[in-house]
Amino acid sequence: MKITAITPLPPSHVAGIIAGDGTLSGGHIQGIAPQAFIVSVRVLDAHGKGRLSAMLEGIRWLKENGKRLGIQIVNISVGSVKKQKENSQLVKAVESLWDSGLVICSAAGNEGMQQHNITSPGISRKIITVGSCDDKEMIDEGGRFYHNYSGRGPTIACICKPEIVAPGTNIVATNAMKGEDDRPYTVKSGTSMSTPMVSGAAALLLERYPKMTNTNVKLKLWKSAKNLGLPRSHQGWGQLDISHLLE
């Protein structure tokens, strides 16, 4: 649960981690963009709780250090369930990152199937908001069983959201909060798992077409998305289709 800044290729002068390169699994499990270099900015505590001030400080750090580190993509797998407007501090701060040229992908949230429940900063009309395409399946998150969890649009300002959906249910990922068994991998569900898939796809796209702007990336995601026949308020443009995206 972090703001994660991704560069398609690792700058040689930066210490960090390679995203999902399969080291922990002996190469059997890899991420969407296995050679992407990740710079993690922690904004939540050990219990997954956070304050607006921490989010704003994380965004400020990205603005001050992003260019030096070669950051091109920002993944925001966290959001506020408190209803906010587009002129809120959080939304304006995230949009300032977009205006600086970064690709911003944010989770739609897990607030169920009613409309107008996209979490912030996903309500921003500029950034790429990501929902889950497979949220009908019942999931168990910490003893809480639910389905149809992916946040639905439109926003209160009648902006169609999310832009795109990707798999988010029972996703295998590295275990950031290791338990007593010290397992390197875990299984999680939610739009926080869907969002990195789109961020990873964007990294692959920028690796292939390095001169693309964030607007170009957004348009390419739109044109390549697979229509699932779901309501626009659920699927947006449709499901992420990486093979079509990279054509």
Rank of each mutant, 00 (worst) to 15 (best):
M1Q: 02
A5I: 00
T7I: 13
T7E: 00
P8M: 04
P11W: 00
P11A: 03
H13K: 11
A15N: 03
I17M: 01
I17C: 00
A19L: 12
A19Y: 02
D21A: 01
T23F: 05
L24Q: 07
L24C: 01
S25Y: 11
G26T: 08
H28K: 12
I29D: 09
I29N: 10
Q30G: 00
A33H: 06
A33W: 01
V41P: 00
R42N: 15
V43A: 08
A46D: 09
A46R: 05
A46H: 05
G48Q: 06
G50H: 06
L56M: 10
E57K: 14
E57A: 15
L62G: 02
E64Y: 10
E64P: 06
I73R: 12
I73D: 00
V74F: 01
S77V: 11
S77L: 12
S77N: 13
K82V: 08
K83E: 15
K85S: 13
N87L: 02
K92E: 13
K92I: 05
V94K: 00
V94L: 04
W98N: 05
V103D: 06
I104L: 04
C105N: 12
A107C: 13
N110R: 13
M113S: 13
I118P: 08
T119P: 02
P121A: 14
R125M: 02
R125A: 13
K126I: 00
G131F: 14
C133K: 08
D134W: 06
D135L: 14
K136M: 14
M138K: 05
I139F: 08
I139V: 15
E141Q: 08
G142V: 10
G142W: 11
G143N: 11
Y146F: 15
Y146T: 03
P154A: 09
P154E: 07
C160Q: 08
I164K: 08
A166F: 04
P167G: 01
N170M: 08
N170C: 06
I171F: 06
V172D: 11
A173T: 15
A173P: 02
G179R: 08
T186G: 09
T186S: 15
V187N: 05
V187S: 10
V187D: 07
K188M: 12
S189N: 06
T191D: 06
S194M: 14
S194C: 12
T195K: 07
M197S: 03
A201R: 07
L205M: 07
R208F: 03
R208S: 14
R208D: 06
P210A: 01
P210W: 10
K211P: 00
M212Y: 15
T215E: 11
N216Q: 11
K220I: 00
L221F: 12
L221H: 03
S224G: 02
S224I: 01
A225L: 07
G229N: 07
P231M: 03
G238Y: 09
L240T: 03
D241S: 13
L246F: 01
E247F: 09
E247K: 12
